[in-house]
Design a protein around this nucleic acid. Structure first.
Lengths: 227, 227
DNA sequence: ACAAATTATTGTCTAATGGTAAGTTTTATG
DNA sequence: CATAAAACTTACCATTAGACAATAATTTGT
């Protein structure tokens, strides 16, 4: 059916517009009319496709999380060892396309919706759990189960922390800076000898190179910016 | 003059009411009228004392940060060694009075104001910088300058991360859990032998005991809940 | 190809909200 | 007590979220 496809397209257009509105005006000053203006339609259309403002924000929230998890999945495809997969998770979470001042600011604005919106809560928890489980899967190769769990939780929380900081600080946080802070934690928390240090270094380098091609490609960006 | 003191009292009452409103309804559903209701005054009074809604939220933001830094300062008074001062910073940031689901949720809601409100930004940055500098001061006793800086930044960011998680998760995050997660990071990032391990353990224990008395006291709570 | 049904879109209406401005009461001070 | 300043109230306006009905476009069944 094309009807449902049109509906799907409109919903995507509108949540993109809402995302843009949150970036431009902040959550509190984002109105349905401004969202409509950005999307080039009237306010009524927005409410035709989304039950209410909360439902729209839910969609925006889900959209930005899909962006993130999509990047991880994409980079994962090129990672061949536990070292590389670990770095794929880190690098994907801080790649410029999604980790930049605007997106982080929007994310910081949007999470304020979580405490009083169970659907956003669900999305957020699923997202945390996914990253934790991804990390856990790789860390088991380097650490005993119990310690791997602690490190996985630590790294997951720390990713959130860096994102919040990036959204709150007035100056942009460099991708390289963020990844290096994660590396600092990994070096302290994983067993490090000359061999593993070299493997980590190599893995980070390879994954960063792959990311520029895989996540930076026009094809991937378009796939993402449209869906 | 008593006039200005009345004004000061009202501003405190109103920002407390606004804080309560954010906890109850979430930032987006917090209206000036609801704030007035909680404070037992009409909406006009709120706007008489605060230029507009942004100014009110700024005050709420500043108030919650004062709560936090006040706890650190208070606990610091009882800490006598670098170990104890380090743990005072950690424990103060996660003491039940300020680290609980409601307050964390309110904090998560309020930080969405930061990106588009320079005054909130100023407060937030000052707060981050204060904690970083506090940590740095103690960590210099355990690590060389450069590494101490990295660890200080890491711990500071991680505190934010735990706060965000506590605000986003549907179940409460235990004080003990949060502090133990910080301890995990400290154990990994500071030099640990039998002697220092014992000193850390002792310091944490002492400071936690002191916190129950110093921060849990009725006098301190009243001083805080009123000012 | 065409009528019926479904879907997209717009415009209108209401209640609630942020904010203003004018007016009233209370308080401080000479 | 008089007067000025501050605290507070009320009435009001523009904007907003959201409901709803009317209209245009599009798909589907025949």
């Amino acid at each position: 059916m094309r009807t449902s496809s049109i509906r799907a397209i409109r919903r995507v257009e509108l949540s993109r517009a809402a995302f843009e509105a949150v970036i431009r005006y902040g959550l509190r000053k984002t109105t349905l009319e401004k969202v409509g203006d950005i999307a080039g339609v009237s306010k009524g259309v927005v409410l035709h496709h989304f039950k209410d403002k909360s439902a729209l924000l839910e969609a925006v929230f889900r959209r930005s999380n899909t962006l993130l998890s999509g990047s991880v999945v994409e980079l994962y495809r090129y990672a061949e060892t536990p070292y590389e997969r670990l770095w794929a998770i880190i690098v994907a979470n801080f790649f410029e396309t999604i980790f930049n001042r605007q997106v982080c600011q929007a994310w910081v604005s949007l999470i304020s919706e979580v405490p009083h919106n169970t659907e956003c809560q669900r999305v957020q928890i699923a997202n945390n759990e996914r990253i934790r489980s991804n990390l856990m899967h790789e860390l088991k190769h380097f650490l005993p189960e119990q310690e791997a769990e602690q490190v996985a939780r630590h790294l997951g929380v720390h990713i959130d922390g860096i994102w919040v900081r990036a959204g709150l600080l007035p100056h942009p946080v460099e991708t390289n800076m963020a990844i290096s802070e994660m590396q600092f934690a990994i070096e302290k928390m994983l067993p490090f000898d000359e061999i593993s240090a070299a493997k980590h270094k190599e893995a980070r380098k390879k994954i960063e190179a792959v990311a520029d091609i895989a996540l930076g490609s026009k094809a991937f960006k378009e796939k993402f910016l449209q869906i």
